[in-house]
C-alpha cells in the first residue's frame, strides 16, 4: 500500500506508553503526507493518526486530551523537546524520529 506521498517515520514510546500500543516500543510508520484537509501532515495529524489507526487500547484518554497529547507526555522530535520545533504544528519530515515519553513519578 506504499504511496509515493507517504512519509516514512519512526515512532517510539517510552515510560509505559508502549502498553497502550500493544506493548510495542518502536513502530516504523508510513504517514500520509497530507492531512484530512490536504495540508502537509504535522504532529497534530500524527497524533490523531496514532490514536485512530495504531493505538490498541480503547482508553484514548491515557494518550490524548483536548485533541492533543495529554499532560505528562513529552513529545520529542529527533531527540529534542517539541517545544523547540513548533509543537504540534511541526511538519513531519521523511525519516523523522518522533518519541512519546510518559513522565514517571516513582522513586
Amino acid at each position: 500500500m506504499s504511496n509515493e506521498d507517504d512519509v516514512p517515520i519512526t515512532i517510539e514510546f517510552s515510560g509505559g506508553l508502549e502498553i497502550l500500543f500493544g506493548d510495542q516500543k518502536k513502530y516504523s510508520l508510513l504517514l500520509p503526507a497530507k492531512d484530512e484537509s490536504g495540508a502537509p501532515a504535522n504532529v497534530a495529524f500524527l497524533v490523531r493518526h496514532l490514536c485512530d489507526k495504531v493505538m490498541k487500547d480503547p482508553r484514548k484518554e491515557l494518550f490524548v486530551l483536548d485533541d492533543t497529547v495529554r499532560p505528562g507526555i513529552l513529545v520529542l522530535i529527533n531527540e529534542a523537546d517539541w517545544e523547540l520545533e513548533g509543537e504540534d504544528k511541526y511538519e513531519v519530515q521523511k525519516d523523522d524520529h518522533i518519541m512519546f515519553v510518559s513522565t514517571l513519578h516513582g522513586g
Partner: peptide
C-alpha cells in the same frame, strides 16, 4: 516549564502497583 500541567491521576502508576526493579531505581 517541562510539565506545565499535572498528568491525569488515573495515568499515574506507583511502584507499589506497577513494580520496580531495584537496580533500575538504584541507577537513577
Amino acid at each position: 516549564c517541562v510539565f506545565p500541567k499535572p498528568p491525569p491521576p488515573e495515568s499515574v502508576v506507583s511502584c507499589g502497583d506497577g513494580g520496580i526493579l531495584g537496580p533500575v531505581v538504584g541507577v537513577m
